[in-house]
Design a protein around this nucleic acid. Structure first.
Lengths: 151, 151
DNA sequence: AACTGTGGTTGTATTATGCAACCACAACGT
DNA sequence: ACGTTGTGGTTGCATAATACAACCACAGTT
């Protein structure tokens, strides 16, 4: 047993928890017009270039009914649209509308700016390392996929 | 602007968001008996060695009514207890009970184990650096966690 | 004593969520 | 062809977490 590593793990656990706890409130302040969940759903639609509701549910460990309702809201707001899949009449492929893309870009930018402010004063090396650690941490999860690894 | 730094910031934003999104579901799977919020409230009580409901509300950017109800539940479950502050009759100092401490330890351990599993294979150096980055990130919030949400 | 501020609770509404039941269609097996 | 089983999605509940506003009790001032 390695106590230095254990200490680091304990710290990582604590800090990740603390961060997660604040994330929702932060999202509410930063972009009240788009909840954290809606934001990630839109983000996934952009990344994937369109997918099914079931895919979203699987990806985010949400019940399909929850996704169904969230998507209904996003559709009512004109941020996503659905079209019947030609090959399978059960399937509705979801896609961002232009308004959805704009909204996503706007919110992403506001989030990015907030993160950037917190990271002001960090060296480029530290930023790069922190980014890679986070990617590595998230990639190690079963049941979800990392985003845009090509970057 | 520095495009390498910008790229890192973008990645950090994305990965932190992705992590935050999953945190709630993860907590539900890992310890259904204690929500993420309850867990952090208990954790704060342990750290602080007892504090007021208002302190919890400030610290986690929650409405005091929310904290009041959460604490009521925790008290009903025997995990926290309150005692009147001798110096100020308005104040109820909240403290963990032994059962609360045990529950917190149990859940922390399960969370720590989950984190540890994801971090298996990391070098001690990487762990230490990741931990310090997270601490630095969380500590340096100009516009987050602390008090006055209205400001 | 009156006013003002602080700690806390309760009433009410909203939102996110899950589970179960359901519908429509698809894919098989006979 | 027809029933059975599986998949994608919606809807009817129920519940948890949350905020805001109104309120109560006490503290500190004036």
């Amino acid at each position: 047993m390695n106590s230095a590593a254990d200490l680091a793990i304990e710290t990582i656990q604590r800090e990740m928890t603390s961060f997660a706890r604040r994330a929702r409130a932060l999202a509410g302040r930063l972009h009240p017009e788009l909840s954290l969940v809606s934001y990630t759903l839109l983000g996934h639609l952009e990344e994937s270039g369109g997918c099914r509701a079931t895919d979203l549910a699987d990806h985010y460990a949400l019940d399909k009914s929850t996704v169904s309702r969230q998507v209904a809201v996003l559709e009512r707001e004109g941020l996503v649209e659905r079209r019947q899949d030609a090959a399978d009449q059960r399937v509705q492929v979801l896609q961002l509308t232009d308004a959805g893309r704009r909204m996503l870009a706007r919110v992403t930018d506001r989030r990015r700016a907030a993160v950037e402010e917190r990271l002001s004063g960090w060296t480029e090396e530290d930023l790069a390392r922190f980014a890679s650690y986070l990617e590595r941490y998230n990639a190690g999860l079963p049941g979800d996929a990392p985003t845009a690894p090509g970057a």
